[in-house]
Design a protein around this nucleic acid. Structure first.
Lengths: 261, 261
DNA sequence: TCCCTATTGCGTAAACTTTACAGAATAAAA
DNA sequence: TTTTATTCTGTAAAGTTTACGCAATAGGGA
């Protein structure tokens, strides 16, 4: 929604297009500067940051909705996207006054207001999805009501709107537990990478250091990655071998399932 | 809902009490006769069996709703209950004609019908919860529209309504992956049990046999169970030692997380 | 050109965990 | 008393994980 007119249309007619009482919130993970980061947005006149999210169309599949919302926000399609939990317990989700107030502060920018009977004033449950994106490929779509966006380190997430901190916590837990089952790295790293790079990624996600030699041994033994015959010339010193993901083994890993380190 | 009047009231006034477009489906696991079983119900004039389910009240927490629904169906409170996934992709969930038809066949028993604009005719997403119950404690509440119920072996689940087979599959996968994290056995077995009993339970859930000696070694070493000083007199032959769950260790196990066998 | 240094590359021993496997003990029934 | 079904327990081998150190070298600086 990039103009006041679109916002007004959404507020007046959105109930025809979308299901009420239900939203999708996306925890978008990207990796940059040796840090695992999350994309946050801030709406007009809101103190707290939020997760990007959206609504489900009346005849749209849930997964399809999550993909649509994500591509609307980041211009990326075919992302790695996983549902992880549905949130509907937080008292902040039940406080209609606060919900209506927050909405109205935001919509003031488009000179509209909603009353307490409006569909957007109502309590919503939110289905949480996490996405893994290539940090460099993301270009956040400018939206009329979104005044700011930021990538924040998962270890320095500020206090967010509603229960979004809780959503992030759960997303991280899920991501960690699926680190080996799914080829998580595949979606966060370039096609080819050095051992140090993938180790740093795993350390950022799991929040603990590994021994380089043992890390390599295990990743290669498990068939997660493959050493290539190629080296890369980097910075001041030596040129390390490149690796890539061994996607043929993905299914075996899925069977093995679960946390390995 | 135990009378036609209650059903009629639900159909006419339910939209005031419940959120539309959203239901909860419960996969209720019980253990009996060395088999892991699931509670299914069948509604009036429906060919296929269904999972027990219900709706979320407008001002009710999601978890609270799941507990309420479960206690309404089984008379049990304080059950072990876990959300595992939200289902909203199956084409059968989007087919309004079929949904309305099925409802009307059921409601015919109460001499009511709904039109396509009725809230119950609309597409719903369903939040899946699984419950672990003591098979012997369950007494299924008689309901006017429910003509039958049955405990079926997880390995012999018939073809169910909508996407309920898919829901069960996912519930089982989740249960298996959480077998050690959570004290699953605690909720499916009596307080004290023999080694053979818990081994049979684990075999039923994971669908594969274990070596008795290794199983005991591991369960005791992990601190999941404790051998007691007590024996039980059972059937024809020897009286085995009893064990109980070592709940003090539950948190440690949670950290360890994941599938162990 | 040579030396220094930061980084990468590689291997082995010890500790621990998992698997495989069999025979002795005993309660109850015949 | 004998038989039988069931439970009880231990050890060796294989595999996995952890801990740890040194040699090689590309690039920068003297």
């Amino acid at each position: 929604m990039n103009s006041p007119e679109e916002v007004v249309d959404f507020i007046y007619n959105g109930h025809q297009r979308f299901l009420p009482h239900l939203s999708i919130d996306c925890v978008i993970f990207g990796y940059h500067d040796q840090q695992l980061k999350i994309l946050l947005i801030r709406y007009h006149d809101q103190e707290h940051w939020s997760l990007p999210g959206g609504y489900v169309e009346r005849q749209e599949g849930l997964t399809a909705a999550a993909h649509r919302i994500l591509s609307e926000k980041t211009q990326l399609t075919n992302l790695y996207l996983q549902q992880f939990y549905t949130f509907g317990d937080s008292p902040t989700r039940l406080n209609r006054i606060e919900i209506q107030d927050n909405h109205n502060k935001v919509y003031a920018k488009a000179n509209v207001a909603i009353d307490e009977e409006h569909w957007l004033s109502k309590r919503t449950l939110s289905v949480g999805y996490y996405a893994l994106v290539d940090y460099h490929e993301v270009s956040v779509t400018p939206e009329f009501l979104v005044v700011d966006y930021a990538w924040v380190d998962v270890n320095a997430v500020p206090s967010l709107q509603y229960d979004h901190n809780e959503i992030i916590d759960k997303a991280l837990l899920t991501l960690r537990s699926q680190l080996y089952q799914q080829s998580v790295g595949y979606n966060l790293l370039p096609e080819k990478f050095t051992l140090s790079e993938i180790q740093a990624l795993y350390e950022a996600i799991l929040g603990k250091p590994f021994d380089r030699r043992n890390f390599r041994k295990k990743m290669v033994a498990l068939g997660v990655i493959r050493q290539l015959d190629e080296r890369r010339k980097i910075g001041p010193h030596r040129s390390p071998y490149l690796y890539d993901f061994n996607l043929e083994n993905a299914s075996k890993l899925q069977e093995a399932g679960g946390v390995i380190f």
